[in-house]
Amino acid sequence: MPRGDKSSYTDKQKRQAHHIEAGYEKHGVSKQEAERRAWATENKISGGGKKPGSGKSSKKS
């Protein structure tokens, strides 16, 4: 996955990042900087582009 690829994010994470970006733009931050800050904020909130349920799984053997 190339750097900057947002495909591993859930729809909810994408919506939240877009909303955060709009807030930064409303406060006069440039479009590019607002996008960068929005994704950094979303990563801090959600822990990155992880999908729900992706973690350790218990295997019964």
Rank of each mutant, 00 (worst) to 15 (best):
A17F: 04
V29Y: 07
S58W: 14
P2H: 11
G48N: 01
K51F: 03
P52Q: 09
G23C: 13
S7C: 13
E33F: 07
S7E: 05
I20R: 00
E35M: 08
S30L: 02
S8H: 14
E42I: 00
M1L: 13
K12L: 06
G28D: 01
E33D: 06
A40N: 10
M1T: 15
R36N: 09
H18A: 13
S46M: 07
I45M: 00
S7P: 10
K31Q: 10
P52F: 09
S58K: 09
Y24V: 05
S7Q: 13
K56W: 12
W39V: 10
M1C: 15
E21W: 02
P52G: 10
Q13S: 04
T10P: 05
S61N: 14
S30P: 01
P2R: 08
A22C: 14
K26E: 12
G47A: 01
K50N: 04
K12E: 09
R15K: 11
M1H: 12
A38Y: 01
Y9A: 00
P2N: 10
D11P: 00
P52C: 08
A38W: 00
S58V: 15
R15H: 11
E33C: 06
A17P: 06
G48Q: 03
Y9H: 02
Y9E: 01
G28R: 02
Q32P: 04
K60I: 15
G49T: 04
E25A: 11
Q32D: 11
E25L: 12
K60F: 13
A22H: 14
E42C: 07
S8Q: 12
K51D: 00
E21D: 07
Q13N: 06
K56C: 15
S7H: 10
W39K: 05
E21L: 11
S57L: 14
S54F: 12
G55V: 08
G47K: 04
G28C: 06
H27S: 10
K60N: 15
K12I: 05
A22N: 14
K56S: 15
K51I: 02
D5E: 05
V29P: 05
G49P: 03
S61H: 13
K51V: 02
S8M: 13
G28P: 05
S8Y: 13
K50H: 06
G55M: 11
N43A: 03
K14E: 07
A38P: 01
I20C: 00
A22F: 14
G47R: 00
S46T: 02
Y24G: 02
Q16G: 02
K50M: 03
M1G: 15
Q32F: 09
D11Y: 00
K31L: 09
G23I: 04
H18K: 07
D11G: 01
T10Y: 03
S7L: 11
I20P: 00
G28A: 08
E25M: 12
G55C: 04
D5W: 02
H27E: 12
S7I: 08
R36F: 05
K56P: 12
E42S: 03
S7A: 14
R37Q: 10
K26N: 10
E21Q: 13
S8D: 13
D5R: 06
S7T: 14
E42W: 00
E33S: 05
T41H: 03
E21A: 12
Q13R: 03
H27W: 04
T41R: 04
W39P: 03
K56H: 14
E21F: 07
